[in-house]
Simulated scan of single mutants.
Amino acid sequence: MRYHVSIIILGILSLICIWSCESQPKDTKKSAKINGVSLVASRDAIDSSHITPITNVNANYASVMPFGFIRSLESAEVLYNTDRQWRGERVDGVTETIKHLHNANIKVMLKPQIWISRGEFTGDMMMASEEHWTTLENSYEGFILLYAQLAQDTNAEWFCIGTELYNFVNARPKFWSQLIKKIKTIYSGNLTYAENWDKVDKVTFWNEMDAIGADAYFPISEDKTPTIKASRQSWQPWKTTLKNLSDTYNRPILFTEYGYRSIDYSGNRPWESQREDGKINHEAQLNLTNALFKEFWNEPWFAGGFIWKWFHNHSEVGGMQNNRFTPQNKPVEKLIKEHYQQYSN
């Protein structure tokens, strides 16, 4: 009798074990994401030693950002690839940078951008006449198609067709439609456009892109040092907006830029970039970044993002006395390294 009871008990335990094992997820590895850094253009040539710190934080992508310049909000001409620019802002420096990144198995988003003198916001750019619009369109097209060809020639995995240009995009839809068509005849990789957080849901050509690009400076907290829990809660309405946008266009959301300064109240107006003395707050930067990671990186409709911003001369930038955006040599750098490792290829 005891023998039969033992057999029955062993059988029940075996069934429990089988059920338990089958109920556990068979693959606990997290889905790979774009774990990127926004690599600031260098004045001088770079080499492989400048790429090593990027690999050390487990980044698998970097955005490379050549610049075109406009003299004022009313000026119509984009100046680009000139001898007066830093090496990293020109074709030769961009080509060199992409080569070193690819040699380190880091993929690339080529992201040409506009800088207006005195730091005026590009989204406010509006031409006063049809003549000025035509001049802007012709020079911007030359700028973008030059780098679309470079993206193709260097096998860049992504190409960003513009950054925070809402007035231009909204006022001149025919121009942007034909520009996208021209880009696609040159470049065969993935396309996105980087719109500012407050206009990303108003862009109408997302169906022509492979991802919806958002520069993710959404206001999250008015607290001096936001907590992770409160920051995650504050993300919910913005997250719903982004999820609905992804569903509408059947495209993933890509944070073409994201990040926070290591300064008091950095979640209140995260887009602000003016220099301020003191007010250093690494905990605020750490908590806000952690909350963003926890809210988005597990979502299937989210592609990943590029932290703003990363300098090539790692040992000379950032640090505990720096209250700017860069995560380099700050507590948040360790968080990024650990987080990116979980979502690597």
Rank of each mutant, 00 (worst) to 15 (best):
A32R: 03
D27L: 10
G36L: 05
L15I: 11
S49M: 04
S48M: 10
S14F: 10
S49C: 02
S42R: 08
K33M: 01
A32W: 02
E22V: 13
D47N: 12
A41H: 06
S14V: 07
T28Y: 07
L15Q: 15
K30E: 15
S48K: 07
L39T: 07
L39W: 10
S23E: 15
K29V: 14
A45N: 13
I16M: 01
V40T: 10
D47T: 12
K26R: 11
A41Q: 13
I16T: 14
I34H: 01
H50S: 11
V37N: 01
S49H: 12
S42K: 05
G36S: 11
D47L: 04
A41V: 05
V37T: 09
W19E: 15
G36D: 14
W19K: 05
A41R: 07
I46M: 02
A41G: 12
V40C: 00
S49P: 05
L39P: 03
S38K: 01
S42V: 08
V37I: 07
V37P: 02
T52L: 01
S38F: 08
T28A: 05
Q24V: 11
E22H: 06
K30D: 13
S23D: 15
I18Y: 08
K29N: 14
A32H: 07
A32T: 08
I51M: 02
